[in-house]
Design a protein around this nucleic acid. Structure first.
Lengths: 132, 132
DNA sequence: TATAAACCTATTGACATAGTAGGCAAATGC
DNA sequence: GCATTTGCCTACTATGTCAATAGGTTTATA
């Protein structure tokens, strides 16, 4: 299940992509348009800045803007940044200690395949595809 | 993310499918083979019984068996029974109050499409496909 | 009637989610 | 230079879910 962090992040990115390129957009405006608490969005944009997807500028006339051309973002990189690795079961997490049953587990290939399907889905979608 | 309930349920179903049809298998045996606490499995089989995927018989010589032929189960129905509706975002849950932004939300179609992809994935897989 | 099995209710610790609150720092315009 | 506007930072919290564990009751068989 995709949490609000991932969903809201996508909406913020879309909101920024729809503005004039090169213009800093105050978070307050985004929050109002998207009807999401500005306070909560602060947490989200912080992650987006840290992940180098957007950049912020303080002070009057400041705000946020995309780091790259809007055509250059995939949905996958945005979701994965916010939600962490797109992995369907704990056994396949990179930090998971190797399951002793991995060799004989009959269900593991299923989860692997599902991860591939989901990964391909998200990385084949571009941000601008959603602008329609 | 698929929880242990869904993953373990699938392994229980597989374990039962690999035994002789028409034979009651004690949960103790399944638990030992699968290396999962029997106590925890009780919770899981309870749901499987309630969902009419397996049936139990008490007393000596009792245990659990599949309700139908093993070829007749899809992975989807097992996972969905345990995890609840396979839905990627809260907005698309059947019990969710209709989001007032649904009409103009640019991201909703994405989540809808993802749900379809995941649904199709799970329901196209049969339990016996995993026995190999 | 002993035994082996399913079945039932309750409880718990750990963690994640979805926020809220309050203040500090930086840049701009007058 | 100073007020204003903006981003940035740390902390806190309520709620809920997950992954079990614990202990007992009922049911059926040999």
């Amino acid at each position: 299940m995709i949490s609000t962090k991932g969903r809201y992040a996508l909406r913020v990115m879309l909101d920024l992509a729809e503005r004039e390129p090169g213009e800093y957009i105050p978070l307050k405006d985004v929050a109002e348009r998207q009807e999401i608490s500005k306070k909560y969005l602060e947490i989200i944009v912080k992650d987006l800045v840290k992940g180098k997807l957007i950049k912020g500028s303080s002070g009057k006339g400041g705000g946020y803007m995309l780091c790259r051309k809007k055509e250059d973002y995939t949905v996958g990189e945005i979701i994965e940044l916010m939600e962490g690795p797109l992995v369907s079961v704990a056994c396949l997490q990179s930090d998971a200690q190797q399951c002793p049953r991995a060799g004989k587990c009959k269900t593991l290939p299923l989860w692997s395949e599902l991860d591939t399907v989901i990964h391909d889905f998200f990385y084949s979608k571009k941000l601008v595809d959603l602008i329609k």
